[in-house]
Write a protein that binds this DNA or RNA. Structure first.
Length: 123
DNA sequence: GTTGTGACTTTTT
DNA sequence: GAAAAAGCCACAA
């Protein structure tokens, strides 16, 4: 029997799979929607080992930056994948950051009062 | 076959 | 500003 609930993992997969092109989500967001805002780290691990077929390229960190451990080149591959889909990001000191204030997407029915809270907690 | 460690972030103290 | 903690899964010895 699972220790907690495997639904956390499946929930993350479902969310990522529902991310429309042109939008992005954050690990903390997926974790929060899955019921574990403090397990954002696990979300990334599950992402890599759980279902590589999902568009994890649309998943970025809370800073709007790129995933550090992305396969095949890490951030470079991630940035290329985003650019290939028409994402607009800003380059900063050799790293690329997305405009989470604009590209951040929430699943239907789970949207907070503000589509993009500037500095408030996710929940 | 079993055990131990590493690893894409986020939050809190 | 910095450090530690927190759901896993996979690989190696």
């Amino acid at each position: 029997m699972p220790r907690v609930d495997d639904q956390f993992k499946e929930r993350v997969f479902a969310l990522v799979r529902q991310i429309p092109q042109g939008r992005v989500m954050t690990y903390g967001q997926l974790a929060a929607l899955a019921g574990a805002a403090w397990a954002a780290w696990e979300t990334g691990q599950i992402a890599h080992f759980g279902d590589p077929d999902l568009p994890w390229q649309r998943v970025v960190n809370k800073q709007g930056g790129l995933a550090a451990g992305y396969p095949d080149g890490g951030r470079a591959a991630h940035k290329a994948a985003l650019a290939a889909e028409g994402y607009s990001f800003t380059e900063k000191d050799g790293e690329f950051y997305l405009d989470v204030a604009t590209l951040l997407w929430w699943p239907p029915g789970s949207e907070p009062d503000n589509a993009a809270p500037p500095q408030s907690q996710l929940l």
